[in-house]
Amino acid sequence: MTEATTFKAESPAREAWRMFRRNIPAVAGVIMLTGIVLATLWGTFFYDGNPYEIVWAPHEPPGVTPEFPLGTDYLGRDIFAGLIAGGGPTLAVGAAAAAITMVIGVSLGALAGFYGGWVDNLLMRITEFFQVLPTLLFAMVLVTLFSPTLFTIAMAIGVVSWPQTARLTRAEVMKIKELEYVTAARAIGARNRRIIWTVILPNAAPPLIVSATLTIGVAILFEAGLSFLGLGDPNTMSWGLMIGSNRAYILDAWWPVTFPGLAIFLTVFSVSLIGDGLNDAFNPKLRER
């Protein structure tokens, strides 16, 4: 009478991990990002340079003086030390901004998608209001209104970039709430809050996780953009700040701008590779390949 267990399959998360592991670009992204994070965390133990201190003549090209492998900037500050010290704040702003984006976007999107009706209408009009504001300008206004610290910058980026996440969450929630296992949860007497948190959101997670990783990349670029425009936190070294402060001399010396630019490029690139890899890993249609 009992059917035999047909096959020993993995849990959805394990299966996604197996898919992810086979995705060479994604694994390369993980290795690259791990390297960047380790370098910014522990780089100072191996390379003790003060990024703020004037240590040499200005605009020393890279590879000339062994003590300053990447050369110096317009004030004669060590660029390699700047890269190591600036990585932490850059990554922190990116991660924090992505977290703020997700918290606002997912909560509002889930409420709008689940309740529909006037709740949906109201929340979507608010979302649209934020969406039509020119994001960079709006962020600039926020940063200038409050003093430009890492925290306010992360807040500003989060506040301008949540609408997309909200829309994505809403669409996912609307799709999932029509599925029978949601009706099944109602049929056994589950309350709405429980249905949203334990049934719908875990099932909506894959695209949201992917979107979160991509948001980190966008937030890092955003921070760089604000710093480039001179709106960054002037007291904290970051890659964006390095580009911003050296941009006036780019025709005289390419290296003070290029190396932090390269660092931003590699970070965003590796995060995008990971995001794409997660996207593929969670896509059931690709699994049987």
Binding site: P12, E180, Y181, T183, A184, A187, I188, G189, N203
Partner: peptide, 21 residues
């Protein structure tokens, strides 16, 4: 909600009626 313990439901599609997670 309290009454639901007395009235229960079996769905058509055994694939979509169980929470996959």
């Amino acid at each position: 909600r309290q009454r639901r313990r007395d009235v229960q439901l079996i769905f058509q599609d055994p694939y979509s009626s169980l929470n996959p997670r």
